[in-house]
Design a protein around this nucleic acid. Structure first.
Lengths: 351, 351
DNA sequence: ATGTTACCTGACATCGTTGTCAGGCGCAGT
DNA sequence: ACTGCGCCTGACAACGATGTCAGGTAACAT
């Protein structure tokens, strides 16, 4: 009876995976020396190093990171988890890209996943990432409280929240100045003399949606407008319902002269309604979130643009710092939004 | 002198990570029984199972997947690698989403990364994924030949290529009918009576770009047009250069009456040029790739639409089948493109 | 009572790597 | 010649899990 079999498959079988043992044998050194070479540790003579490297090339050897991190003291897996609203959405995908670039440069791989604003998904994905022992997490929180999501023993896992601030847990966050951006949209429309507004917003249980509405309404009130009378629609979750609502507004007895849409998809629906009814040059529109081709429409669409690339970049850098041991108190970073004037927001109220 | 220390941190320290040993001790069973429960293996009495589950809940225990896959016979890490041109590009990000959905449902996590049409990046990312022992790979190949990318011992790693077919290696592929789509665009324009064309394309070293040009030119030749005289621009890599080229064409002595742009970004540049010069209702345009808001422009933009979601879905299903042991000969799956008529492609040639 | 079978259960080796530690060698200082 | 130090080097245990295997118990047939 044989004691060990694993090395038997070495010479014949073309698709066995070489291990450190195989490299060590071929180079005629101890296994630990191979480890030292692979990890660029000191105290290996140049001659030995060369011999080992030659053997790794010959066998096409590659370190098994999982096995390594099991024993290594820092237990780093060189991977992080990224939880976004939806990787297919342009806002998310730009964040994704910015984050990827920074981590790739450091040899850290990124697990990305979409949440679809579903708290159950959030929980199961966090569990999945924790089970893979990621070194950190960047996420857009959904659940009302994240405390129960993160087991006690993972509270010190580096984490950065994006787009929305964490609740029930202490962590860095990177967000857009939602209220301020929406406030600026209101001010912009008020300056053109508008008095009859309509507001179409996202799911109201999402933090950012509330902030945008608050910002918008605050400014209207400051101008003496009774916001109780402003037609307000929350929970507009898809383009088609936004379109229907906008059509209703446009065709009503007293249509608004200015519409604010608080999110990308909502804006698309409103645009369709305006175009269909031919009112695109009569009713003003400002949308939250920039989008491709906004400048090519007739008229160009005035928006409050966020800077997803910047958000992603800052979040990635914060997470890296935390992973590297930064212990400063957690903080929220605010990325200012930007008003981009293109035409639709400068239409004056009809006489 | 103590023999083992690891369990010492158990009671006091709040952020140690419980291991199977801890759970086993708490439940008063052997470590292997915990393993059986965690993996839903049979041959555990209901009473014991309950006791173990209670202990896992008490300690908030979570299986370490990496450690498990090290010893497990199938060695599955429950993760795959996904290499896309650019996760921020809408075409890529929709593929990303479709793939993610299918793998998440199976508990498999997805590492995603962007290649930027850079062969060096391709090589280093593949190495990174291989080092993490992914169970499979979905990728958009860049290098002229993938054979050297994949070490011999990983040739049997399940792999599916998307958008472009593999070279130097046998594997499934899922692609758009690029030539046929471009051919259809040509036929569509020819049917409107056009005879003066211009062609703007992507980097010509990319497989899909060549196929599109071939398809387009083949159809023109069939109609008796001397394609040697058709102004043809390859290597148009960004919107601005596309715009410049289009401006040059529009302002030339004999401007084309119909333009075909073989890729998204190129189309955007051409659109800008047409709008600036006010020729958007005079010169016909068909673009490859659909995009958001294409129906909202004036005129709507006629395109050959690809179906990225469908491509992603098929690729994911093929990879899953391979991971599950499907051994059938590899095959290329073709996802038909679709001509979407919106106005810009139906403009007749100027008299 | 005994043998057979089916079901539970845990000790132990092991996956591929890194941390610890002790040993060997060469060279400078005395 | 001897000690001390610095540099290389490999044996061995261990990371947290799973596979193997043997032992133990209860139930049933003989």
């Amino acid at each position: 009876m044989l004691t060990t079999v694993s090395n038997e498959m070495q010479p014949k079988n073309p698709n066995y995976r070489p291990t450190m043992r195989n490299v060590a044998d071929l180079a005629g050194v101890g296994i630990k020396t191979v480890s030292r070479v692979m990890n660029n540790e000191p105290n290996v003579s140049e001659a030995t190093r060369e011999r080992v490297l030659k053997a790794t090339r010959q066998l096409n050897y590659q370190l098994d990171m999982a096995a390594g991190s099991l024993k290594r003291t820092d237990r780093k897996t060189m991977s992080i988890g990224l939880l976004l609203p939806n990787v297919a959405n342009p806002f998310s995908s730009e964040i994704n890209r910015a984050i990827e670039d920074i981590f790739n440069a450091r040899g850290i791989a990124v697990f990305a996943a979409s949440l679809d604003d579903d708290a159950a998904r959030e929980a199961s994905l966090i569990t999945a990432f924790l089970g893979r022992r990621v070194d950190g997490l960047i996420l857009t929180p959904i659940a009302a409280n994240q405390a129960y999501l993160i087991p006690e023993h993972s509270r010190d896992l580096p984490m950065v929240f994006i787009d929305r601030e964490p609740r029930g847990i202490e962590a860095d966050a990177v967000v857009t100045d939602n209220a301020e951006g929406a406030r600026r949209a209101a001010a912009h429309l008020l300056a053109r003399g508008h008095t009859r507004f309509a507001y179409l917003g996202d799911r109201f249980d999402i933090q950012t949606a509330q902030q945008r509405q608050n910002g918008f309404f605050t400014e209207l009130e400051k101008a003496g407008i009774d916001t109780g009378l402003v037609p307000t629609f929350n929970g507009v979750i898809d383009e088609e319902s936004a379109r229907q609502i906008a059509l209703g507004l446009i065709n009503s007895a007293e249509p608004p002269t200015a519409i604010f849409s608080a999110q990308n998809i909502v804006t698309f629906g409103v645009l369709h309604a305006l175009k269909e009814t031919g009112k695109n040059h009569e009713i003003a529109l400002v949308g939250f979130d920039d989008f491709l081709m906004a400048d090519m429409l007739e008229p160009g669409v005035t928006v409050i643009a966020q800077h997803p690339g910047e958000i992603g970049r800052i979040a990635a850098e914060r997470l890296l710092a935390r992973i590297d041991g930064d212990e400063q108190p957690s903080k929220t970073y605010i990325v200012p939004s930007e008003l981009i004037v293109r035409g639709s927001g400068e239409i004056p109220p009809a006489a």
